[in-house]
Simulated scan of single mutants.
Amino acid sequence: MTIGLSGVVNAATPPSTGLGQAWPNATDVSTSPNYHAYVFVLGGIQYIQINDLNGNVLGSVGTTGGQFITLPIGKFAQLVSTPQQPAATTSNAAPTTSPTTVYNDGTTTVTATPMSDGTTQLSAQLAATCNGADPAGCGTHGS
């Protein structure tokens, strides 16, 4: 019985390897059908990677205890912003749509905003409390 329980616990634990890969061996936890979001945990730090539909890594952040850091991986890593770190590069491009929530675990939210120059801006921040008022921002599409 303990062996079976151990397997269940391990299955629920996010992986600690695969960050930066197009198709990591991790569950897609995206809240949007237009993106893929993967979570990795190592040393108490949660790493969130956002990919486009074709598996291209767009950007990634690390977070723990309300603190964020942009990781230097992904096609648009220079366009990722966090509460502690503005995007490394600015652009005159205009958003083509409103920001889309790509990831929300109730603590952290990541949004993606497609821009007129073909880039995508990612923004990570502390999540507002998920109260069910916006179900699309609170769950996962599980693809």
Rank of each mutant, 00 (worst) to 15 (best):
Ser91Glu: 06
Gly118His: 11
Pro83Phe: 14
Thr96Pro: 06
Tyr35Ile: 00
Thr89Tyr: 14
Ile45Trp: 05
Pro95Asp: 09
Ala94Leu: 15
Gly66Leu: 01
Gly44Ile: 04
Lys75Asp: 14
Tyr38Pro: 01
Thr13Asp: 09
His141Lys: 10
Ser116Val: 05
Ala11Arg: 07
Thr111Gln: 00
Gly20Phe: 04
Asn25Glu: 04
Tyr103Leu: 12
Gly20Ile: 00
Gly142Asn: 10
Thr82Met: 13
Ser81Cys: 11
Thr90Ser: 14
Val110Tyr: 06
Gly4Tyr: 10
Thr64Lys: 10
Phe76Asp: 14
Ser30Ala: 02
Ala128Ser: 08
Ser98Thr: 15
Val61Asp: 03
Thr89Asp: 14
Leu42Arg: 12
Asn131Gln: 12
Pro33Asp: 15
Pro33His: 15
Ser30Pro: 05
Ala37Met: 04
Ala12Leu: 15
Gln46His: 02
Trp23His: 08
Ser6Arg: 15
Pro86Tyr: 12
Phe76Thr: 08
Gln46Tyr: 04
Ser16Cys: 10
Tyr35Arg: 04
Thr70Met: 04
Tyr103Gly: 11
Thr111His: 07
Ser98Trp: 07
Thr119Gln: 02
Thr101His: 13
Ser30Gly: 05
Ile48Leu: 01
Val9Met: 07
Asp134His: 13
Gly74Ala: 02
Val57Pro: 04
Asn131Met: 12
Val61Ile: 13
Thr108Leu: 05
Ala88Lys: 15
Gln84Thr: 15
Ala128His: 14
Thr27Ser: 12
Ser30Leu: 01
Thr97Glu: 11
Ala112Met: 13
Pro95Thr: 04
Tyr47Gln: 02
Asn131Ala: 08
Asp117Arg: 08
Thr96Cys: 07
Ser98Val: 14
Ile3Phe: 11
Thr31Gln: 06
Ala128Leu: 06
Thr70Glu: 06
Asp134Asn: 05
His36Met: 06
Ser98Cys: 11
Leu122Glu: 00
Leu58Tyr: 03
Gly106Arg: 15
Leu122Asn: 02
Val39Lys: 02
Gly55Val: 03
Thr31Met: 00
Thr31Gly: 01
Gly139Asp: 04
Asn25Ser: 11
Thr119Arg: 02
Ala133Leu: 08
Asn56Lys: 11
Ala133Tyr: 11
Ala77Arg: 08
Gly142Arg: 15
Gly132Glu: 03
Pro99Tyr: 05
Gly20Trp: 01
Leu71Val: 07
Tyr47Trp: 06
Gly118Thr: 08
Thr89Pro: 14
Pro24His: 00
Gly7Met: 14
Tyr103Glu: 08
Cys130Ser: 15
Gly18Met: 02
